[in-house]
Write a protein that binds this DNA or RNA. Sequence first.
DNA 1: CTGAAAGCGCTAACAC
DNA 2: GTGTTAGCGCTTTCAG
Lengths: 331, 331
Amino acid sequence: MKRITIYDVAKEADVSLATVSRVINGSEVVREDTRAKVQEAIEKLGYKPNAIAQGLALQKTTTIALVVPEASYFYTGQIINGLIDVAKIYKYNIMLHTTTEGISEMNDIIENIIKSRADGVVIFNDKLNKEELNQLTKYQVPIVVIGNKMSDETVGSVYVDYAKLVYEYAMECIRKGKQRIALIEDRKNPAMIKQLKEGLNKAFQEHGKTFDGFIEIPKEYRSSYLFLKEYVKQQNHHDVVITYRDSQAMAVMNVAKEEGISIPNDLELVCILDSKYNAMARPQISGFKIPDYDLGAVAMRLLTKMLTDDEEVTDKEIELSYIYTPRKSTK
Amino acid sequence: MKRITIYDVAKEADVSLATVSRVINGSEVVREDTRAKVQEAIEKLGYKPNAIAQGLALQKTTTIALVVPEASYFYTGQIINGLIDVAKIYKYNIMLHTTTEGISEMNDIIENIIKSRADGVVIFNDKLNKEELNQLTKYQVPIVVIGNKMSDETVGSVYVDYAKLVYEYAMECIRKGKQRIALIEDRKNPAMIKQLKEGLNKAFQEHGKTFDGFIEIPKEYRSSYLFLKEYVKQQNHHDVVITYRDSQAMAVMNVAKEEGISIPNDLELVCILDSKYNAMARPQISGFKIPDYDLGAVAMRLLTKMLTDDEEVTDKEIELSYIYTPRKSTK
DNA sequence: CTGAAAGCGCTAACAC
DNA sequence: GTGTTAGCGCTTTCAG
């Protein structure tokens, strides 16, 4: 089947290609019978407009680039789902890019995005530096970043204030006398952990204390579990342990169980990024419902606004909230 | 910053646009000093070739469409990772499409893929019907499907033989006298469950018996857990329970624990799609390591072969193998 | 309301 | 080696 073009349709319908163009773009000015004639020809030939050619002519690809970290948690998946759902509404296509650990990696991706002439880009990545974004802004590509509060002329952001989240939680803990709070490192999400530390620091400072419960996982340990197993034996005692991801919380839970530490009686456990696995653990792990899907959806919606000249973008910095879900691992 | 084109570079370097085109495409015939001159101009102007225009001229977008189900498990993420890694090697971009439950959904996506002139498409989806694929083949778009054994002129496939997997496992169980095998339904993956049932049927048939352990989750139950909780009370007894996903296995484990059924003593539990969560459960759940990453990687590699005229595609149907990982939930 | 023609940015013969 | 030119398929003034 020969690639059939707008010319073929024009000939078949005995009109000019301009007219065909008008009907596929839903122009109002076409007479009803010619529209029907053209429509028929389109159907008959199985014609599908070439988006590439349209892109060239319109200087607009109706495609946005999405950059996410390679490590794929359920969380990331949800962000993508939200993103895609609203992208569909606005007829945008998604070009997916993933970042690996590599150093120059991000630059390659940016180069790629520019070449492919994406109309805009949404970036969700823990490790993100301003320099790289500048590349994009230099080429005037509108950007929305998810997870980091950061914006200027061409970049907007959608995020959850983790520092505030953990700050509030810690304040409550301290008030209740649970002062020995531990935060477990997550090597894969350094920026996130940094925010959590900030919140904790602030909470302790306001009580005239300093936060010293950050537990680093030495590089030689493959998993939190392996390290914690050792760690606990050294009698390090805490009132509450905070982890970022569900798998870390489960590791803590397993270690506690094996070492005869009762959760929540001897130790309370809370996981920042809640998940269905938290609810499946026994005892069930308390966590914060982070609006993952919404992060994606709102980010995409914001981007569409930035992409449409006549839509006023009043706020380029959007903070989303969280909901604490107490379960059985906390009192 | 004005969109700068090949003409601008040509003018800056004082050569024709053909020459510029040659250097960006690494043509050998350009003299070294002119190449340098052009390169310099490119750098100076910050020129990035317009992939859209290239696509139009070459009738090739260097983009493949990837279709995955919206529900995102870790498993899907891994497939995508594998896919992307090899796509990067061959310089292909990925256009991501997700399928929701909706009926006409798939047709919209296909329409979209055709319009965007993707060079090829990789489809990973449990619910997949031949009809829809025909749309694509009609427009001669090479396809690789992941998960289903299926191929013809323009479609290749990469899959794991789940029927065989479960057949072998069941044979072993029956041999050991564990004949009361149960398989739990997974509404989200009907085709997968169908394969598993086939394997089970075959194993029982070969022993002159019939498999009757398929446990359907009635629609009114929101989760397997809720239903199983009831189910177990009715004294339904099995020797081994097989689930497809980790969360289902965990549900079974929780119910068993709560009902005083000892795993693996009273009941053995095995999960087809292994995951890190299986290893984090207590007792740890046995499972099959399915080569998720490889499914994606091999699929993409196969597609690149199909996309290159001079590469001989000897086998369009590639079966990948699995590895049984016995843990604590089986004896 | 419809057609003619220029142009979007780049590639690939074909000349020179 | 390098330049000229004709498309690739579509949109969009501008005429009529």
